[in-house]
Amino acid sequence: MALPHASPGQAIDVRPLGAALPQHKTTALFKAGDLEVMRLVLPAGRSLPVHQVAGEITVQCIEGVLDVTVEGTSHRLQAGELLYLAGGVPHGVTALQDASALVTVALRR
């Protein structure tokens, strides 16, 4: 069963999960015509393999520490930091500590 996405005008809680992080999974918060927003949840040591998407991306670390590898260059993101990626750029993500992040993707049709 798919989780419902937020409706326009609906507030979404993206505060740090804290001690509850291990019980959460990555979820899509909403998807509109040109934009998708997800909450990425990664326990320490877990990763997303190198991949790419057509549209631009932002990764905003909410809690923990993430290593985002972009075309072979490592970027360490801590809580409060945001990384912008151009569309089509290969990237991978590894949690150096239990972490959650807000990921936005500009959808290309």
Rank of each mutant, 00 (worst) to 15 (best):
P43L: 12
E56Y: 04
R108V: 12
P49T: 13
G64C: 09
E36R: 09
F30K: 01
Q52S: 14
D67V: 12
A106N: 03
A101T: 03
V93D: 09
A28M: 00
C61L: 09
L42V: 06
H75S: 05
L35V: 14
L35I: 14
L83K: 11
D98I: 04
D67C: 15
A106E: 07
V68C: 01
G87T: 08
R46I: 01
V50W: 03
L85W: 08
A106G: 09
D98P: 00
M38A: 12
T73H: 09
V59D: 09
L40A: 12
G80W: 08
L82Q: 13
A28P: 02
E63V: 03
A86M: 13
S47E: 15
K31S: 01
L48N: 14
H51I: 05
L48R: 15
P43A: 15
V103W: 03
I57F: 13
V50R: 14
I57G: 10
P49R: 15
V70P: 09
L40E: 10
A99C: 12
L82E: 09
C61T: 11
V89M: 04
T69Q: 12
G87I: 13
L40D: 12
A101C: 13
E36M: 03
V103A: 01
H75K: 03
T69Y: 05
Y84A: 06
E63D: 00
L102K: 00
L85K: 09
